[in-house]
């Protein structure tokens, strides 16, 4: 019975981490759009290349933040949460 409970905890944590990383779609699309616009801008005005590249990298890094929130939650779910939950379970059983 205990094995089953721990198995459910581990499986739930892994599934949760996987679901959290769905958030990676958003930054991917956003950064793709940003880079596409930057490429167009450089194509139109090749002399503004360095300024456009710097701004694009800044924007990409800011757009990445939501993906990184998901990543942090996924890392917590994989490395921290199972131990916590198993401890809580064992304490409640006594």
């Amino acid at each position: 019975m205990l094995e089953l409970a721990i198995g459910i905890i581990l499986g739930g944590c892994a599934l949760g981490a996987g679901c959290a990383m769905i958030a990676g779609i958003g930054p991917g699309i956003g950064e793709g759009n940003a880079v596409a616009a930057a490429c167009e801008a450089i194509g139109r005005q090749p002399e503004s290349r360095s300024a456009v590249t710097t701004t694009m990298l800044m924007g990409c890094a800011v757009a990445e933040t939501t993906g990184l929130y998901a990543l942090v939650i996924a890392i917590l779910l994989i490395f921290v949460a199972p131990g916590r939950f198993v401890n809580i379970l064992l304490e409640s059983i006594g």
Binding site: V62, E64, L68, V72
Partner: peptide, 16 residues
């Protein structure tokens, strides 16, 4: 919070 998470998440995800 977002500044700390951005920097830490990028470096940590790279190492993982």
């Amino acid at each position: 919070i977002s500044m700390a998470f951005r920097h830490y998440g990028n470096v940590l995800s790279g190492s993982i």
